[in-house]
């Protein structure tokens, strides 16, 4: 483990046996994260991003999920660790913000009760002290009159407030690793802006490592230092946010950028979508999982159909791409073919 690395995931594989066959949701994922840094994981539904986050937190049921590989959190290995060990870390050293706060919170208990419970699981303190801490936390995430709202039930909060309460609950034990799974997808844009702003400030304050999982490239550009693009359960491109948005080299990343209408650019005639559908995780295409949708597959000379490419280094240091095309050709295609088309937007 390199110095400064706080979380290291090595060759993580998570699959689920079903009647139709083995669903390989995550297939050999590796990445590292330092404290104070933000990693954005981008991908479409079924690309394995949420399964990865649940895997790190040890939330997969061992009876129906097969997890292998290594997850190192600050010197502890989590995959082989017992349920008790992981439970002691979960909510304490690592915490999660879920997408839908209405279903992630218990409707029968007050917001305060749930935050107090989360705190007292990991701290031997009286209810009174924990309650004070909960009120303090609610105030810090920007809930007005926290001493009154602490006794409200989740349904009495608006969507944005509920998400703030969720963040308060996740942060109550001062976690060093925070995973946010589509934290703003259920929210309106103006509320999303508030929440993103809040997460940014809190991360600076707590110096935690943050993983943001989203399908929204705008959110990633806003928060992430590094970006990991997933497709069919694998990482297909990894690099700094600047690299991924300014010099992406994987055809799928190009496709994502072309699919997205942008508010900051005058209109283009047509979007450039990715043809076809995301692959089934039971029957991944042979060779490169993206080859049936890839416009540049013919240029690999049949390699794309037969052989799965390795995740290999590219021009920039730390930039990894899983593609058969030679680096200089990818860079040329991006420069001459794809980028002008996107900028014509």
């Amino acid at each position: 483990m390199a110095a400064g690395t706080f979380l290291e995931v090595k060759d993580l594989k998570i699959s689920f046996p079903t009647d139709d066959g083995l669903v390989k949701s995550v297939d050999g994922l590796s990445f590292q994260l330092e404290r104070g840094k933000t990693l954005g994981i981008v991908g479409e539904s079924g690309s394995g991003k949420s399964v990865t986050s649940l895997g790190i937190l040890g939330l997969h049921n061992k009876r129906n999920a097969q997890v292998s590989g290594e997850i190192w959190l600050d010197g502890d290995e989590l995959v082989s660790a017992g349920a008790e060990t992981v439970r002691a870390l979960r909510g304490n050293k690592m915490a999660m913000i879920f997408q839908d706060p209405l279903s992630a919170m218990h409707p029968f208990y007050t917001i305060g009760h749930q935050i107090i419970e989360a705190y007292r699981v990991h701290h031997k303190v009286s209810k009174k002290v924990a309650r004070k801490h909960a009120i303090d936390m609610l105030g810090r995430v920007g809930i007005p009159q926290p001493e009154r709202r602490v006794d409200d039930y989740p349904h009495q909060f608006s969507g944005g407030m509920r998400q703030r309460a969720m963040i308060a609950m996740a942060l109550v034990n001062d976690p060093q690793l925070l995973i946010a799974d589509e934290p703003t997808t259920a929210l309106d844009v103006t509320v999303q802006a508030q929440i993103l702003d809040l997460m940014h400030k809190l991360q600076e304050e707590f110096n935690s490592a943050l993983i943001v999982i989203t399908h929204d490239l705008g959110v990633v550009a806003e928060l992430a230092d590094d970006v990991l693009v997933m497709y069919g359960g694998r990482c297909i491109e990894y690099g700094t946010a600047r690299t991924i948005f300014e010099q992406p080299e994987h055809p799928y990343t190009w496709g994502l950028l072309g699919s997205m209408p942008r508010i900051d650019r005058p209109n283009l005639d047509r979007l450039v979508p990715i043809p076809g559908l995301p692959p089934s995780l039971i029957n991944l295409p042979t060779g490169c999982a993206f080859h049936p949708r890839c416009a540049y597959e013919p240029r690999t000379g049949g390699l794309g159909r037969s052989l799965s490419p390795e995740l290999a280094g590219s021009g920039q240091p730390g930039h990894l791409v899983r593609c058969h095309l030679p680096t200089d050709e990818r860079q040329r295609i991006w420069r001459e073919d794809v980028k002008p088309k996107l900028e014509a937007q």
């Binding site: 103006t190 999303q192 802006a193 490239l217 990633v220 550009a221 806003e222 948005f245 300014e246 997205m260």
Partner: peptide, 9 residues
């Protein structure tokens, strides 16, 4: 202004 712009720069 609330819409996140996909441009880290």
């Amino acid at each position: 202004s609330a819409v996140p712009v996909p441009d880290p720069a």
